[in-house]
Design a binder for these strands. Sequence first.
DNA 1: CGCAACTCCTGAGCGC
DNA 2: TGCGCTCAGGAGTTGC
Length: 267
Amino acid sequence: MPELPEVESVVRSLSSKIIGRRISNIYINNPNLRNFIDINIGNKLVGSYISEIYRRAKYIVFIMDDFVLIIHLGMTGILLFNGNLSLKHNHVNIFFDDGNYIVYNDCRRFGSFHIINKDEEEVFFSKIGMEPLIESFNYTYLKNLLKGNRCIKSFLMDNKYIAGIGNIYASEILYMCGISPLRQVKDINDVEINNLIYSIKNILTESIKNNGSSIRDYKNADGVFGVYQKFFKVYNRQGKECYNCQNKIEKILVNGRSTFLCNYCQS
DNA sequence: CGCAACTCCTGAGCGC
DNA sequence: TGCGCTCAGGAGTTGC
């Protein structure tokens, strides 16, 4: 899916268009996403005003009068503003009082919809780690968590420690700071921790500026593709030359996920 | 604890 | 043109 920059791009492209709007109708074409969407629960949202939209980890959060709608895009979910209503894999349409609407389309149906009461929001996100782009995501926060034998790449992708980093950005971040994805977290030294933090913030921020990355399905709510994939240094570049040392980029498996690195620049 | 293996699902890309 | 295989941005669960 969409990782942090892609979800952020969706939220930004959506917010000015639907904040202050009232939901006039919800149509569920297929309730069988990762979780089952109860149509009666969906109908509870009709009549609600959307007062705020934000991203938390890889979730899109819609704040309403009494309820909170939380959408996860899974691997292939897209949320299109006034998108084509007759596409294959359209699962949910949300219509607004001004005649506009958003369509949730998700080929693999790994995404999810959660409708909760306002007072349940904190609990919903209680197991999610810190947002990497806020100031308090710093040396002190990370130092305390980098204990044990697990490898740094699986740590970066573990959303209970850091929110929003997925398989693509984990590889890109580790290349930027010269750390091998296989390094055990307890062996990351203080200089490397600071470099890692810098790389996380830099890569995610740059990607957001480019509307994220579009590998195949992803686009923001305006239907605009991200272009950050043009700047990938290692992801999907196995066999090609490292931009820094000209040795070949390698592809390995880490916890079953494709991982890309330069064995000379990363150690 | 870490992690491998599996689950959910569809389709693109590849070799033959 | 088609078949079968592998792989894909996530994340939860199970079992070792």
